[in-house]
Design a protein around this nucleic acid. Sequence first.
DNA 1: CGCCATTATCGAATCGATTCGATAACGCCC
DNA 2: GGGCGTTATCGAATCGATTCGATAATGGCG
Lengths: 360, 360
Amino acid sequence: MDGEASATTQRPTLAAVAALAGVSGSTASLAFSGAGPVSDSTRAKVLTAAQTLGYAGPDPRAQSLRRGRSGIIGIVIEERLQDAFRDPMSLAMLDGIADETGNAGAGLLLLSDIGGPQLDIRSAPMDAVILVGCSTRLDESVAVLRQRGMPVVAIEADDMPGVLSISLDNRDATARLARHLLDLGHESVAVVALPLDAAKEQQRLPANWDELATSHTTRDRLRGLRDVYPGFGGIVATRSSIDAGRAAGLELLEGADPPTAVVAQSDLLAMGVIRAAESLGIRVPEELSVVGFDGAQVDAMGSYDLTTVIQPAVEKGRAAGRAAVELVEGGSPTPMAFTSELHIGTTTAARSQPERSRAG
Amino acid sequence: MDGEASATTQRPTLAAVAALAGVSGSTASLAFSGAGPVSDSTRAKVLTAAQTLGYAGPDPRAQSLRRGRSGIIGIVIEERLQDAFRDPMSLAMLDGIADETGNAGAGLLLLSDIGGPQLDIRSAPMDAVILVGCSTRLDESVAVLRQRGMPVVAIEADDMPGVLSISLDNRDATARLARHLLDLGHESVAVVALPLDAAKEQQRLPANWDELATSHTTRDRLRGLRDVYPGFGGIVATRSSIDAGRAAGLELLEGADPPTAVVAQSDLLAMGVIRAAESLGIRVPEELSVVGFDGAQVDAMGSYDLTTVIQPAVEKGRAAGRAAVELVEGGSPTPMAFTSELHIGTTTAARSQPERSRAG
DNA sequence: CGCCATTATCGAATCGATTCGATAACGCCC
DNA sequence: GGGCGTTATCGAATCGATTCGATAATGGCG
């Protein structure tokens, strides 16, 4: 007798099951995968043997080596998870992605491209990658992935060869918001911008933002604003949150020459700006118009109906997930461009008349 | 010549690199992994060959088969991602987990145990699993995982053999909150509970909640309240959110015989209850005391300083992540029990005198 | 000068399954 | 009853790396 198998905590292998069932390994495999003709009696024998041995099914590692697929799709997040997941838009997208990839039987592997000896894009066993919240510096990541022959989907990034892009009309949508403000007579407009790059300190928007920005989304939205208000200025917030918006709003509104309208680059930031205005006794929209971006249903929005553009975040995620799945299966999905929808709420109004200015 | 390799889009293998470099496969492997003595000149040759062929490093699939490790830790979420990620506590824990597993060089694979042909706990290539937001019905999941010989860490679950548990003093902390209310003279206390199970409809708390509840956290916290207020009743909210809290709060406060104090099972729910009170013209804390749970920094908390218990959510996640890593490495970490800290804010006050009741 | 301890390299086995081509068994029809 | 098309099963190759034990080359030391 060979009583050596039970000493270690080794799981039984398919070969062991086959041996016990008295069939060959190939037949046992067929019996499990159902990918071939197997008689009912044989299948039963195999299944019984598996039961006896406590065989939990084929080892996924061996399977993925043989099949050349792991069933895993990587998602690259550019920030700390906690930051990424606080943003309702990221969440919505993630949910869309999860929906599609889940339906296709794939799992989602979270990867961050920052720091650490982490399991990273060069060593993770995945079949495709989705880049979320893309910055322009992801070129390196893409290079690595291309070398690995890995299909890549990018959400809101520049077009890059070999990368399937899912885009949003950030520029145009912002321009539409700006034009709405222009129609209302606003001349002094300031932005509360999303971070330009990884450096997260609040600052005045530098004049050369177009060169500095590594975040596509931020840059494109700023461009949209510039299309309508060439000389606009503003503040760069530390992140997309109500608190960051309030801080930025305070700096804007308490400074010299406060604007009559603020373009916030997210609904959370917009809500923060409104808070800031409230705390300074500035009425919205009578004395200050505020617009956002996203169409997030911000809890705590109170009685305001924010003027904003509504982006199809879940759909964007869905599209990305679907594209990734198609790429894995050898298909060639087409890039998709999504458009946002202007929603005019109660936070914008015609510019108050100059004669109401105090002193003169 | 054998010009057949370039036709397909096949990635080069380590063997190809070794061949070009004129060394054996084993040596090439050593050169890459650094796990053995290799002369500098040989290493250089190998690296050059790799460069030439565009070799992107060892195939993770083959690696994980051979090594018996994939570097992936699975996280089982019991709800839709979107739901899970909306809860600040889940996020904080996730962040703690990600921190520790990331440092250990492991990636996080998101798994949901609901529906679909998903890559699931029986077929995902992972080294360990962390169960988050555990319900009592996860016994089946645990059975599957044990059969696979997979290390399992569970956060806030019953003790189960073979499962390393990370627990929180849900019951005791709730009892402390309740005692605080008792000290303030409150006799009529109602709960706004977290969902008892997957069914997500708002309902009156059934009398036999102790049997019905499949969520450990919900049940243990309810038990804590019962320890102090044996006959309490209340509402089961649809989820942990401000909106759900408001809805539940309205039902409680508009109903017959409204309570003088509400124990909400999360800070978000508590905030919702406060909102409900505000909209009904009921003053907090003068006419209604409200306590929460979690110690979440709820944006939009306004001027309230919520009485609650602060749980170390990030630390809980860290502990789970660390435990998972240790289990993978063959260690035997010990279970951990975390405790929450009572924070008395401005949302609780002594019960208003009965003579203030209207009519009689 | 010869022996032994290092150091660098190699060959072959191994991880655990899948899959292709071959073989054997079987019933069918003319 | 013999040839043929099915159906079930098997053997062996393969996926792409890692690693153990063996071998060859190198250097130090007595």
